[in-house]
Design a protein around this nucleic acid. Structure first.
Lengths: 339, 339
DNA sequence: TTGAAAGCGTTACCAC
DNA sequence: GTGGTAACGCTTTCAA
C-alpha cells in the first residue's frame, strides 16, 4: 500500500530516482540504490499495477487463449497451460486466462482495452477462427500449433513432420517394411492441427521409402477400449511389425496390453515408436522410444518470441518449428530379432 | 485505441457524461446515451484497462491460485478452472492464473500491486500454506475446499459430509448392512481436503446406523488396475453388498468391469452410489446413482461471494457448503432383489 | 441532466 | 548522477 513518494522520502531521493533504481533504466549510485532498496523492503513497497500500465508502455500481462472444449484431452492441455504460465513468469509476465467463447471474443476485448501485451493461442484448430481475429488486432498474437491458413501469423510448434519421418525411418532402417500408424480419436483429427500432419508425413515417408503403412484413428479409448484392441489385432494380422503411435496415454496402454495378450513381444515381434506425445513413455509397461512433444520447449520459445514482438524486435512471421529429440528406450529391434 | 475524449467530442458531450453513460452510475438522458453509444461503436472505443484500474476502485480481475502439481487429476482441475473462469466472466471479471510456486508467492505479489480485486484458491490441501498468506493479505481471498485450519477464512465447497451420509443412508435404507467405500489414490488422501472428509463421514454414519463399513484407498489406477480389482474382489468376498465410490472415473470403470467379470449384477448383487464425482456417472457401462460435485455450482457461489467482499458487503467467514443433489440412476436395489 | 477539473501512482523526458 | 514535472486515460466530486 506504500506509494513511490513515501519510498522516495524515506530514502531521501526523488521519485524519479526511485523509479529508475527499480527499473534499472538509468544508472543509480550504489549507495543511493542501497538506501532505496532498504526503504522499499522497509515499507513493503510494490508498484501499483494500474499506474504502471497507464504510464508505462507495457502491462506485463499476456493472455492465454485456450478454448478448453469439454471433451479435449485435459492432461495435455493442462501441461501446456502450466508450461506457458511458468515460462511467462520467468519473463516477469502474468497470464490472463481466456476460455470458452471468450477464447476468441475475449482476444479483441483484452487487446482493445490494452490489458495485455500479447496473446498466446493454445489448442489451435486447422480452421481456427482466432487467425482472423489476430489479423485484425494490433496486439501481437502467437499460435502454438499451426492453423491451415497461417499466412503472416507467428506459429510455434514441434516439427511433427520431421518427428514422424524420423520415427518411420527408424523402423524402416531396422528392417520393418510393413508399418502401422495408430492415431488418436477421430475427433482429434478434425479439431486438432497436428494429427493430420503426422498421418500425412507418415504416409508420404512410407511411400518414399517403399514401405507400406496403414493408418488408423482409434475411437475414444475411455469409452471404447475394444475398438482400440481390434485395431491392434487387425494391424498385426496384416503383418505389421513396426508401429508408430501418435495418441494419448491410454491408447498406448491398451495397445501394449493387447500385444501382450496376443503373446507378442516388444520389440522383437513388434517394434514401436511414439511420436509427439507429452507424457512419459518411459514409464509404460514397456518403455517406448519416443520423439516427444515437450510443452516447456514450445512455451519457452513462444514467450521469447512474444517478448521480441512486444519489444519491437523483428520476428519472422511463419513457422517456428522445434526439432524433435529421439529418446531411445529399446522398443525398436531389427526385424526378426530374437527376444 | 480511441480515447474517451474522442468519444465525448463525437457525441457532443463531456467526458464525464461518457463515463457515466458507460458505467451507468448516474442517469443519462436517453437521447444523450444513444449518441454516446453510437460514437462508441463508431470509433470502436474500449476503455483503457490501466487507466480504469488507476482511477477506479476495482481492477475487474481475479487471481486464480491453482498449484497444478504434476500428478494432480487433470480433468477435475480443468473443470474447476474452466467453471471459475466462466463464472468470473459472467460478472465481467477476467482471470489471472497463478500456478506452481507462484500459486502461493504470486498471491502476495498480485495483491500488493493491486492487480487483482480478489483471489480464488483451488486445489486446497488440508495444511494449505495459502491460508497463512490470505491472513496476511488485505485482498479478499476465498478457498474452494476446506483447509484444516480455516478459522476466519471464507470457504466454499460441496457438503461432502452430507453427500456421504445420504449415500450411506440410501444403501442402508435399501437393506444393505455391509458396506464398502472405495476412495481415490493414497496421495489424494494426503493432499486433497475432501477424501478424508468423505471417509470419516461414511464411517461415522455407518456406526450411527449400526452397519459395517470397510474403507479402502485405491492405488493410482492409471498405473495399477490390478490393485483396484483386488480391492473389489476383497470387498465382495467379505460380504459387502453396498458400495460407496469416491474416486476418479477410471476407478469407477475398473470397479464395474471387475464386478461384471465376477458375474455380479448391479444393483441386484451389489448396489452402488458415487459421491462427490465431477464426471457423468450416467454414461458409465452401468449408470450409477450419484451425489455429484458440480464445479459450476461451487464456482458461481465463490464468484458471488468474492464480489460481495470486493463491494464491501458483509460475508460470513467460515464454511459455505452446497447441498448435494441425489441423482437416481437405478444403481441401488433392495438387498436380495432379483436382477 | 450535464460539465469542469482534481486526482489516481507511475514512467520518462528535460534540466541541471 | 539526480530532480522536477508533464503526461498516461480514466473515475468521481463538486458545481451548475
Amino acid at each position: 500500500m506504500a506509494k513511490i513518494d513515501e519510498v522516495a522520502r524515506a530514502a531521501g531521493v526523488s521519485i524519479s530516482t526511485v523509479s529508475y533504481a527499480l527499473s534499472g533504466k538509468r544508472p543509480v549510485a550504489a549507495e543511493t540504490r542501497r538506501r532505496i532498496e532498504a526503504a522499499v523492503s522497509e515499507l513493503g513497497y510494490s508498484p501499483n499495477a494500474g499506474a504502471r500500465m497507464l504510464a508505462g508502455s507495457r502491462t506485463n500481462i499476456f493472455a492465454l487463449s485456450e478454448p478448453l472444449r469439454a471433451d479435449s484431452h485435459a492432461p495435455s492441455h493442462m501441461a501446456f497451460m502450466h508450461a506457458m504460465t511458468v515460462a511467462a513468469r520467468r519473463a516477469d509476465y502474468d497470464m490472463l486466462l481466456l476460455t470458452d467463447e471468450d477464447a476468441s471474443a475475449g482476444m479483441s476485448r483484452v487487446a482493445a482495452s490494452g490489458l495485455v501485451d500479447a496473446i498466446l493461442c493454445l489448442d489451435v484448430a486447422p480452421d481456427d477462427q482466432r487467425v482472423a481475429i489476430a489479423r485484425r488486432s494490433a496486439t501481437p498474437t502467437l499460435f502454438i500449433g499451426i492453423p491451415d491458413d497461417h499466412a503472416g501469423m507467428v506459429c510455434v510448434d514441434l516439427d511433427f513432420e520431421q518427428a514422424t519421418r524420423r520415427a518411420v525411418d527408424r523402423l524402416i532402417d531396422a528392417g520393418h517394411r510393413s508399418l502401422g500408424l495408430l492415431g488418436g480419436s477421430r475427433r482429434a483429427y478434425q479439431r486438432s492441427n497436428f494429427p493430420p500432419r503426422v498421418r500425412r508425413a507418415a504416409q508420404e515417408r512410407a511411400v518414399e521409402r517403399r514401405a507400406t503403412l496403414t493408418a488408423h484413428a482409434t475411437g475414444d479409448v475411455v469409452t471404447n477400449r475394444d475398438e482400440c484392441r481390434r485395431l491392434i489385432r487387425e494391424l498385426v494380422a496384416t503383418g505389421v511389425t513396426g508401429l508408430v503411435l501418435h495418441a494419448p496415454e491410454d491408447v498406448h496402454q491398451v495397445a501394449l496390453a493387447e500385444l501382450a495378450a496376443l503373446g507378442l513381444h516388444v520389440p522383437s515381434d513388434v517394434s514401436i515408436v511414439s511420436v509427439g506425445t507429452s507424457f512419459d513413455t518411459g514409464s509404460l509397461s514397456v518403455p517406448l522410444d519416443a520423439l516427444p512433444l515437450v510443452p516447456p520447449r514450445s512455451c519457452d520459445l513462444a514467450v521469447d518470441l512474444a517478448i521480441d514482438l512486444v519489444s519491437g524486435r523483428p520476428v519472422a512471421p511463419g513457422l517456428h518449428l522445434i526439432a524433435p529429440a529421439y529418446l531411445d528406450r529399446g522398443s525398436v529391434a531389427p526385424r526378426g530379432a530374437l527376444p
